[in-house]
């Protein structure tokens, strides 16, 4: 099944859940007073930052600020995840036993410990030594996490390319690095777009874990907003919807790229 279909189904399920929430609350005689009208201002509002700030203009509400931060972290972690993953994927196939061993150790370490623990360790241990902000620590944690998974995907992608490709490139006088860059990796990446997209969709969702180090991402802002206002259902549904916008857009973009690249098939 394609990501698009999946996202549409998720959207439908979300709608059904909202409807069901209404229905069951009414059935059980719980008078939950819905305040959907409070949601828009958590996204955007016109006003000043504080009482003594005279500038009145369109501003981002808390949820939108969280959305932007989550987006920022996800984009950065995806970017660094691809870089780390490419290096690790190549290292995993190196002739050098030390390079191979180190990259394998990294992959195994990251894949076999919880992301939450990794984020804590980077923030409280590495972060306090290097004086990293929560933003840097959170982004680094997610990048390192994604890098391990991307590394395995890249490795499998490289291995799936017929070895005649490397031989043809090398026989033309290309160095190993040139052959990788111009011949092997472009083909490998084309092949691994679907698993990579899956990985980065997971990454967007996993990014919610950075809220534990008080990084004001979408999940964190949602929690805070709920604690302040008690519009529990409205806020969490909105938060879920905002995550869905990000994952849905990513899967759309992926399909577009995949179609573009399929011309040489």
């Amino acid at each position: 099944m394609t990501f698009n279909k999946r996202s549409l189904i998720t959207l439908a399920v979300l709608a059904i859940l909202v409807t069901a929430a209404y229905y069951f609350l009414i059935r059980r005689g719980i008078t939950y007073i819905w305040h959907w009208e409070k949601v828009p201002e958590m996204l955007f509002y016109i006003g000043s930052k504080s009482a003594d700030d005279p500038v009145v203009r369109l501003r981002m509400g808390v949820l939108m600020m969280g959305f932007v931060l989550t987006l920022k972290i996800s984009v950065l972690a995806t970017f660094f995840g691809i870089i780390i993953g490419t290096v690790v994927g190549i290292a995993r196939l190196s002739k050098e036993p030390v390079t191979r061993g180190l990259s394998l150790a990294y992959v195994e370490l990251i894949r076999n410990t919880p992301l939450l623990v990794q984020i804590f360790m980077i923030y409280f241990f590495v972060g306090s030594i290097l004086r990293l902000s929560a933003f840097v620590a959170g982004t680094a944690g997610l990048s390192i996490f994604a890098g391990a998974y991307v590394g395995e995907i890249v490795r499998s992608g490289i291995q799936s390319i017929h070895k005649g490709q490397m031989e043809a490139a090398r026989s033309l006088g290309m160095s190993y690095a040139q052959a990788m860059r111009y011949v092997i990796l472009p083909q490998a990446f084309k092949r691994i777009i679907p698993p990579l997209a899956g990985q980065f969709i997971s990454l967007i969702k996993d990014s919610s874990l950075v809220s534990v180090i008080a990084l004001a991402d979408l999940t964190f802002q949602g929690q805070q907003a709920v604690a302040r206002s008690y519009y529990t259902f409205e806020i969490w549904f909105t938060v879920a919807f905002l995550y869905l916008i990000m994952t849905f857009s990513l899967s759309m973009a992926t399909q577009f790229v995949e179609r573009r690249l399929s011309i040489s098939d």
Partner: peptide, 18 residues
Amino acid sequence: REEIGMVFQLFNLFPHKT
């Protein structure tokens, strides 16, 4: 290798390139 051209049984053209 620049001086020695090689032609393979299975061609090994780069499929992602024209």
